[in-house]
């Protein structure tokens, strides 16, 4: 009997330790939350992006400047070192990065303690939010407010990525270019879907350690290279592409868009 009790206890010990292991590693308490930030640092090649004043050169050797850069990122998910996924709640999962508003590019999340090896997010606004009642479109999704220039009123849907500027290579419209990339797949008819999910492995350049006791908020520093919009997969030249206001015309740009986000480093 004594043996049985001892072996039972041993079994229970093993079971309970196994269970614990699948949830967290000894140094983290998954029942506690810590802060984690994700920074979207907009660059052009090897230069920090400067609106209006700076001149850049694209892969077709055409010069341009940027007057506006705004884009939605949403539906954030973080995967920790034991494979558990933290999903940011829907109602606080939509962000509008605006180069003219420095505060908009640093997003802060509260999530369980752990080392996070993967981050994934959507560039744009998913089809569900794109079709919700107007009363649910608050904050950055308010089509009558913050999102008024990030919305196609004539073809109901959010613009996911909005890059505007001028180039001497463009003869029409005073050299203006407008790349409005959107298209969530259609409400009652199938239309082009330009939503892109970005998944970045953070281990090579530093996985963030989230702990309640952290003094500094760990920061995932992403580079967003605007120049890759012109070249990542498809070559986009101002000669043929200057005004893009439809989901179909945006497809080659959206393919490039999926490649412009890279993890540069993490500040722990």
């Amino acid at each position: 009997m004594k043996n049985l009790i001892i072996s039972s206890l041993f079994c229970i010990f093993i079971i309970s330790s196994c269970t614990k292991d699948t949830n967290s590693t000894p140094e983290y308490n998954v029942n506690q939350q810590g802060k984690l930030s994700v920074e979207f640092d907009n660059i052009v090649g090897s230069n920090n992006l400067q609106l209006n004043t700076a001149t850049y050169t694209n892969s077709s050797n055409q010069t341009f400047n940027v007057t506006k850069l705004k884009y939605f990122v949403s539906n954030f998910k973080f995967t920790n070192s034991v494979g558990a996924v933290y999903t940011q709640p829907q109602d606080s999962s939509y962000f509008l990065i605006d180069e003219s508003k420095p505060n908009s590019s640093n997003l802060v999340f509260n999530l369980p303690e752990g080392q996070y090896n993967l981050v994934s997010f959507l560039v744009g606004v998913d089809s569900l939010r794109n079709t919700l009642d107007v009363s649910k479109r608050t904050g950055v999704l308010d089509v009558t407010g913050l999102a008024s220039d990030m919305y196609w009123s004539w073809n109901s849907g959010y613009i996911f990525f909005n890059l505007e500027g001028t180039s001497s290579a463009i003869t029409a419209n005073n050299g203006l270019f407008q790349y409005h990339i959107g298209g969530f797949g259609g409400y009652n008819t199938v239309t082009p879907n330009n939503l892109k999910t970005i998944q970045l492995n953070l281990t090579a350049r530093g996985a963030p350690i989230v702990k309640k006791s952290n003094i500094n908020t760990p920061n995932i520093h992403l580079f967003v290279d605007v120049n890759k919009i012109f070249s990542a997969v498809n070559t986009i030249s101002f000669n043929t592409t200057s005004i893009v206001h439809s989901s179909m015309l945006g497809i080659p740009l959206a393919t490039n868009l999926a490649q412009i986000f890279t993890h540069d480093h993490t500040e722990n």
Binding site: D133, V143, S153, W154, N155, S156, Y187, N188
Partner: peptide, 17 residues
């Protein structure tokens, strides 16, 4: 062209056009 799928969103189009 049926580009707008909700009556609440309709007014935005002529207002901003």
């Amino acid at each position: 062209d049926g580009g707008i799928f909700n009556l609440d969103l309709l007014s935005i189009s002529p207002i901003t056009n």
